[in-house]
Amino acid sequence: MSLPSVPAIETRGLRRVYKTKPKPIVALDGIDLEVAPGEFFGLLGPNGAGKTTLIKILTTLLLPTTGTARVFGFDVARETRQIRRLMNIVAGGEQSGYGLLQVREQLWMFSQFYGLGTREGWQRVDELIEAVGLDEQRNQKVSSLSTGQRQKMNFARGLLNDPWVFFLDEPTLGLDVSAARSVRELVRTWKDALPGRTILLTTHYMAEAEELCERIAIVDHGRILAIGTPDELKHRVQSESIFRLEVDRLERGAGALAGLPGVVSASTATDGTTPAPDGVQTLNLILDNDTALGGVVTALGSMGAQIVALRKSEPSLEDVFVELVGRGFDEDGAGSNGHHEAVAR
């Protein structure tokens, strides 16, 4: 499968300034971005980083102040009609919907706004209601839906036209753990079913970005600070591989490992002189890369030591952010840690 020459999303020198008093707010400050067709791309940054502004521009809701933004080569300022047929959006953290309408009815109306035929619209709505798990709520009024159910309905609306570019603006914001998991699962399932489709996800939940996205751009104050795969980004702050081993009968101490190929340093908390009462010691290893671990394991075996536990220490995306910005997400009130744990559950 050859990739098209036109990126799914492309911005060049994109700048957006809100004329507010007492002074203007620079929401985007020269964004250069290229997202390939079929890519699951994430924009990760704290509140106020400019993520939503970028999505608003790409979805034709907002004009850029300067610079260009294109979706499949169509200019967001001049070729809105073409773009609107190709994309859709789901935003989180909002209570949108015509409360008096039934779920099925509201979705059908949107299918008509997207040009589906009457019967085709009902058929598509029923498919999506089943896909997002709203079978029991299909004839309920929108106002009676829970926050999670409402977000599922929003997803159904967003998928009505099978968009080529699907914008997800903080889609799990305000959802409980279970609802957030179900939304992520839904996104993944849709993407797996239609691999040619592009997703641009904005989030300030690092675990979410890491779990879903193939590439991530870290943004802050309207600028892209770094772009790469999650592994590439993490590699920026930690080039070596760090391991912590619980080792029994490490009688010759860590010093014997220091000269092995690829080992940068090896140390124990007690340096082998005063072993713990149960004989198990903690061995800290810094290696050039993961492959050096094999030599260490072999050496420990030949020394008669036994590995009880092994744990790799990896930096988080928050470490990357702190490294790049000099402050954490929490300082902007994003509350990322709590969600990180929630996602892990």
């Binding site: 036109v6 190709l86 997207y114 009505l160």
Partner: peptide
Amino acid sequence: RHALRATRS
């Protein structure tokens, strides 16, 4: 890209 349309639209 000109032929590209969301299949449902």
